[in-house]
Amino acid sequence: MKDEINCTELENLTRFLIALGDDSVIYSHRLSEWCSNGPYLEEDIALTNVALDYTGRARLFYQYAAKLEDNGKTEDDIAYLRTEREFTNLLIHELPINDFAFTMLRQYFMDVFYCLYLQALSGSKDESLSAIATKALKESHYHLKRSEPWIKLLAQGTDESRQRILRAQAELENFTGELFLMETWEVQLVDQGIAVDRSLIQLEWERQVSAFLAESNIQFTQTQLQVSGGRCGIHTEHLGHLLSEMQYLQRTYPGMKW
């Protein structure tokens, strides 16, 4: 009986690590799509540097998951050889980059979210998780320093830039609710002091986002329509296309290395 409990615990932890890795790798891939398409060189470099930070996180989560699974699979197997339904990222990470306003508004939403989430996760009883979160938290604080001024600039800039921010907001509001929905197996990990209850940071996230957007005379309202399903592997139509690109090389030339 004792072994059975430990087995579920281990399974839950692995699942959790892969989900966090999926959030990061998918988001990183989206940001990397800006490479050579940024509005100007410095911003191009900034977008891809943020992407690099997220790749780093994904690698740390996947490496840890691979170590726990201990079945000979590596971080690369997890990233490149799973299908759409096996990915469990929260949906907001997989939405297409759209225009620069959309990319930066999502970045801002994610930055506020990760500053709160990683802060909480750094208190995890799991030492490795806590260490990864502590390291990543510093990066997210820095990302926020870049996304905030961009939102202000775009929202208070020209009519066109403001319209684009408002359009981005109308779309993103359908996906922010999922950030705070918990699966049963995640709740079990929260009870063990390993994971973080995301529903508990929702109020603070909304408070910060509303107050910040209000400075640019934008009202933040959580819409009734909330799309969800990412943590169960139910995705938007966009993820499959992303994976077909991201996994192309390993699917076409299995085992290919640098």
Binding site: E42, E43, I45, A46, N49, V50, L52, Y142
Partner: peptide, 29 residues
Amino acid sequence: LLSQFGSTACKALYQCQDCLESFDYFKCF
């Protein structure tokens, strides 16, 4: 500040207003 990220993740890009030279700043982290 020209850009919050420079040639690597650990650096930001700055410009001197006096001598007009652009340079890397090692971010305080």
